[in-house]
Amino acid sequence: MRAIDLQQVSKRFLIHKTREFAVPRLGRKSSHTVEPFWAVRDVSLQVEPGEKVALVGGNGAGKSTLLGIVAGIITETSGKVSRNGRIGALLELGTGFHSDLTGRENIHLNASLLGFRPADVKRELDSIVDFAELKDFLDEPVRTYSSGMIARLGFSVAIHVDPDILIMDEVLSVGDRGFQAKCKEKIADLAGRGRTLLFVSHQMSAVLAMCPRTVWLDKGRVRMDGPSQKVVAAYEGAVTSLPRATSVEVR
């Protein structure tokens, strides 16, 4: 059984122009128009359990929408989506953190939303805090944290949930180099234990290091799907004619 199986999946967003008034004014033609926008079109993608797949593509290629569909946050307009196993969606670090709650309270809230049970949190709490390097700040409100501390805590909670299928959207760019290295190590560790990984990144070095297979999305369609070396080379070849900002990994 496949971990992720997408059959000709499409997603149409309706762009509402001039949404100020839903009720057209009397005697005038309504200026309210709805324009369809296809963010993802006819995408078929099969991922086997334990496979590590990267999604690359320019801005607006539909990468995040596709991750949202796989995660079950966005409902596809047509096509068939099936997933097998517990999904961990790391679409944004520190989701649902509330600035007035303490680190400890936020760990509980965040972990429950990501699929933890009370016993899991109890068991993993020390490990979560150690990994995030926040021992001394655990009972301080998160509003006193730096953005790096929040990102670290968010990543730490998410990674400890230990999902069968880990979905990540460009979250590796947070924290200092040391923490980034730790994150990559943790992800590699997950991958080593047979977890499936679907991962969006603009950092081609991370793609090449972590994923043997890469899917290149372009304007909502799959442009290329194959070994990372080949796809990344083709993708980078195609974007060199564009301003370098889209592919460069220097930050």
């Binding site: 995660a71 079950g72 946050i73 997933r83 517990r86 999904i87 509980h108 809230l109 429950s112 939303l113 699929g115 933890f116 049970r117 009370p118 999902p163």
Partner: peptide, 15 residues
Amino acid sequence: TAAAPTHDHLYILRN
């Protein structure tokens, strides 16, 4: 449909 079957709704609610 995608909400993982392992989610503890009561725990989320409490939080």
